[in-house]
């Protein structure tokens, strides 16, 4: 397996000198690549036997102002999974469309568009995916306050609004007096 991995690293870095690899124990190999290289690298490894697109995962790196897309691809022959990782600007999240390489990418890209607001070049699909009449910011973005939204939108079922906090229960029982400035650290 190490031999296959090192051949892959050599081949990909030969064509894409900017790509940076990160080897993991076992059957996993990661590449950090530029977003514009994503379609051609995926196309290349698909030709090498990595025929199965298992998943596209998304991460909101809000502190760094970027989204990350992780294309997880599997080779039934090599029994290795490759993670192709690319970052895109959070303010203008436009990614290449890989629908022509894997048809099922359509579903993942719809999910990314609805949940994170990531757009794909020339992507055509119905606007709504699983949400209905959504007027807020995309809900999987980390600046979306799920709890506040739920409190505003839904009713509590009677008898279920009693979620108690362990820390508060103990403060009350032992009559601990926490100074105001320290309270923000209680959670």
């Amino acid at each position: 397996m190490e031999k296959i991995k090192s051949n892959l690293i050599e081949a990909i870095k030969g064509t894409y000198p900017d790509a940076r690899e990160q080897d993991h124990e076992g059957n996993r190999l990661d590449f950090y690549v530029k977003k514009q290289c994503v379609p051609s690298i995926l196309n290349y490894i698909k030709g090498e036997g990595y025929i199965h697109l298992s998943h596209i995962a998304f991460v909101d790196w809000i502190e760094e102002g970027e989204f990350e897309l992780i294309y997880i691809v599997w080779s039934p022959k090599d029994k290795i999974k490759i993670f192709i990782r690319a970052r895109v600007d959070r303010e203008n999240p436009l990614m290449p469309n890989i629908e022509s390489i894997w048809r099922q990418a359509n579903t993942y890209q719809r999910e990314a568009r609805e949940m994170y607001g990531i757009q794909f070049e020339g992507f055509e699909a119905p606007n709504e995916f699983v949400l209905e009449d959504w007027n807020e910011i995309p809900p999987m973005r980390r600046d979306f306050d799920t709890q506040a939204y739920a409190e505003e939108t839904f009713f509590h079922r009677p008898g279920r609004e009693d979620a108690m906090d362990v820390r508060e229960a103990i403060i009350e029982r032992s009559r601990e007096e926490i100074p105001d400035f320290a309270k923000k650290y209680s959670r």
């Binding site: 820390r167 103990i170 209680s186």
Partner: peptide
């Protein structure tokens, strides 16, 4: 994990989760 079980058995009820959280977030002075 800020549960605070510790504060109850501390005879002085020191504010343990609070100061540990302050350390975790880099606020040693607090």
């Amino acid at each position: 994990i800020s549960c605070g079980l510790c504060t109850e058995v501390c005879p002085e009820h020191m504010h343990i989760p609070e100061y540990i959280n302050a350390i975790a977030t880099g606020n040693d002075a607090d």
